[in-house]
């Protein structure tokens, strides 16, 4: 489940890059969500400087950072795409509604009151809600086109598979992080209704997903 989840996560980022480059625009894509993910990865992967887990872990962490940086570059700076980024539509105020509350939560709920642990908790809470600006954009547009819908589906699926992996760990009496689990559950719930409409649309053979 862990590996499958990670693969879905990378796939989702690559699908989004492909989506932007292939259609030569970033209509309906929230750059704020990508910026939030950048903050998530930057605060969680501080441990890159502290200890080594495995070549796999290091490689994946660096890959997430690079691909997310590339996506932000495409939307904000690349000549070909930046005019198509909907700055006005991507108006969710994340400083007030997401960054502040997540920081407060991480000061209360953490494994140890140290800088690195607080940043780690912060990244878990922020990841759970980082998708909200993208959801808000999709809600406004009412319809999600094909590749974007695959992006959302794979990104949501990744955290669901992590939940399966945590459940498997619990059944094996292995320790799990309750902060991760609670963040993961909130994150997956945020995707629940999108999953429903996605599967409905794909069963009908629709190219895009209509949201109510």
């Amino acid at each position: 489940f862990r590996i499958a989840g990670d693969m879905l996560h990378v796939a989702s980022l690559l699908i989004l890059a492909f989506r932007i480059r292939n259609s030569k625009n970033c209509v309906g894509i929230s750059c704020k969500t990508q910026e939030l993910y950048m903050i998530v990865f930057a605060t969680r992967y501080l441990d890159l400087f502290l200890y080594f887990v495995s070549l796999y872990n290091t490689f994946m962490k660096v890959a997430y950072l690079i691909i997310t940086g590339y996506l932000i570059y495409l939307m904000r700076f690349a000549k070909l795409y930046r005019q198509t980024y909907d700055v006005k539509g991507d108006s969710f105020q994340y400083w007030k509604w997401l960054l502040g509350p997540c920081f407060v939560l991480s000061m209360i709920f953490n494994v140890e009151f140290t800088f690195v642990e607080i940043m780690w908790s912060f990244s878990i809470f922020l990841e759970a809600v980082a998708f909200v600006p993208q959801l808000e954009m999709m809600r406004k547009m009412g319809r999600v086109e094909n590749l974007t819908s695959h992006y959302v589906f794979t990104l949501g699926g990744y955290r669901l598979l992590y939940i399966f992996s945590w459940v498997a760990k619990i059944m094996d009496n292995e320790p799990i992080s309750w902060i991760s689990l609670s963040g993961g559950v909130v994150q997956t719930i945020l995707y629940a209704d999108f999953f429903y409409y996605y599967i409905l649309a794909k069963l009908k053979g629709d190219k895009s997903v209509a949201l109510p």
Partner: peptide, 10 residues
């Protein structure tokens, strides 16, 4: 300020 817990998830 450094944590004493090693995390193996991404």
């Amino acid at each position: 300020w450094i944590s004493s817990y090693i995390k193996d998830e991404l």
